[in-house]
Amino acid sequence: MALWGMVIDLDRCTGCQACVMACKAENNVPAVGPKEAARGRIISWMHVLREESEERTRFLPRPCLQCDDPPCTKVCPVYATYRNPEGIVAQIHARCIGCRFCMAACPYNAKYFNWLRYQKEGPGQNPDVSVRPKGVVEKCTFCHHRLQKARERARAEGRDLVAGDYVTACAEACPTRAITFGDLLDEGSEVARLARSPRAFRLGEELGTRPKVFYLAEMEGHRRV
């Protein structure tokens, strides 16, 4: 059994948002339009935050951190969100009743609510991801449908899943190669190696959520003037 995880190198991330747009195209996340955006209802499964401090600015891309001990799943009254055996925290839209408890429970604001029916019927959509009606919560799924397709393909070719068969859309697009994705349990994998780096840290470690998204801190050389 794999444990899917991600490492994001903040030394490299330029805040370009290629990951954000790749995610939107992959998962049929629509733009909500000026009115809804002004009410803070933009849906951005992958969202690039900006952290400003005295000495530096850094960009921090935040997908759902796929907590290994997720607070969001525990509060859902209808089991619409759960941690699957490979560690991916899933969201079943057909079951979601829109109570938004999970949104309140997520310390990382990784969940989004469909206040209206934002998704439009239209060409150009990815048929591999499910439709979100009005009134349900959605979030990053680590492009879970890609795992299913990769498995299908491997099975059809009569082989096991190998590293690189399954990558998320954001990792695939990132022009600075800041995002590494893979199986954290596969000792030899790039993602496992980076997660053990002395630069690695996790967001809100003290909360005990044990995210499977790791960050790599910037290296020396950041000076203002």
Partner: peptide, 18 residues
């Protein structure tokens, strides 16, 4: 439209088409 409807009806199981 009907393809989409079909997948939706499956409860949105990803990879349904495959």
């Amino acid at each position: 439209v009907s393809r989409r409807g079909f997948i939706g009806a499956l409860g949105g199981a990803a990879g349904a088409a495959a």
